[in-house]
Design a protein around this nucleic acid. Structure first.
Length: 262
DNA sequence: AGTACCACCTGACGGC
DNA sequence: TGCCGTCAGGTGGTAC
């Protein structure tokens, strides 16, 4: 599920644990998660170096190695990080395990193995090569609207299109549309200026709130949809049963009473 | 450019 | 008990 707020939380976690320690050992436990690199290449890039800083772009987390390339982490749906000391605490689906000279370890755990790990010399080049748009939180209202209007289909598909803006996935697009009072099926062309402004405001509000809550749904406001996105879930605003539809291959939940079609 | 589908991948869950 | 289909969803591919 890692979308922008989740990855931002993982970034803070990495920053507060694993920086500035020399890598002693690198264990690749599943080659499936490597993208365009071999295990020996990853090992020789990391060995003897430190992670010195991080940045995030959309759902990607990049960690700079001193005098070396960037380590690029994507978390798919089930990826996470765990920093620990005792082998006992190693997560069950660890695919990559980095051991530091301090004796601490950083595990990249990914149950479904839909996440990917790679290296790049050039962070900007990597982002461009992946075809990612600007990070969703870096957009001003004008650019947000201009980029969304490049798409034609339902607004939900546009919000999730990483080429238009990076970081929003299925969960948070539903939340943003709910908070904006706009149905996910609404065509971009039917959104007027005021709806666009509402959408922009909701996007910032939802992403920033989720980051403040460390992407933990339990901590989010009770007015949020996130905990009710399931069969039989009810609208936190009006209490009516939520609608469930497939849209561009994803399951969308929304309230047909509170969210209009423009 | 859109849509619709498939594949990757694993585990939970409901039905029989 | 255990088998089967379905679902979860980020990304990337195909065909139409």
């Amino acid at each position: 599920m890692p979308e922008l707020p989740d990855v931002e939380s993982l970034r803070h976690y990495l920053d507060s644990t694993a920086l500035h320690q020399t890598v002693r050992q690198v264990e690749v436990k599943s080659e499936k998660i490597l993208s365009g690199i071999t295990a020996p290449q990853l090992q020789s890039a990391l060995q003897g170096r430190c992670l010195q800083s991080t940045r995030r772009h959309g759902k990607y987390l990049l960690a700079r190695l001193n005098q070396g390339p960037w380590l690029v982490l994507h978390f798919g749906m089930t990826g996470r990080l765990e920093y620990f000391q005792d082998r006992q605490r190693e997560p069950p689906h660890t695919r990559l395990l980095i051991t530091f000279d301090t004796g601490y370890r950083l595990a990249y755990d990914c149950l479904r193995q839909l996440g990917r790990v790679t290296l790049t010399e050039d962070a900007e080049g990597f982002i461009a090569q992946k075809g990612l748009g600007p990070d969703a939180l870096a957009l001003d209202p004008g650019t947000f609207q201009e980029r969304l209007r490049r798409a034609r289909g339902p607004v939900k598909a546009a919000l999730m299109n990483q080429g238009l803006m990076a970081g929003i996935g299925n969960i948070y697009s539903d939340e943003i549309l709910f908070q904006a009072g706009i149905s996910p099926r609404t065509r971009i062309s039917r959104l007027d200026e005021r709806a666009m402004e509402r959408l922009y405001h909701s996007m910032r509000e939802v992403l920033e709130t989720a980051i403040r809550c460390q992407a933990d749904a339990q901590r989010m406001p009770s007015s949020y949809l996130i905990l009710r996105r399931h069969r039989g879930g009810r609208c936190p605003r009006c209490g009516s049963g939520l609608s469930r539809v497939k849209l561009s291959g994803r399951t969308s939940y929304y309230c047909s009473e509170c969210q209009s079609d423009g």
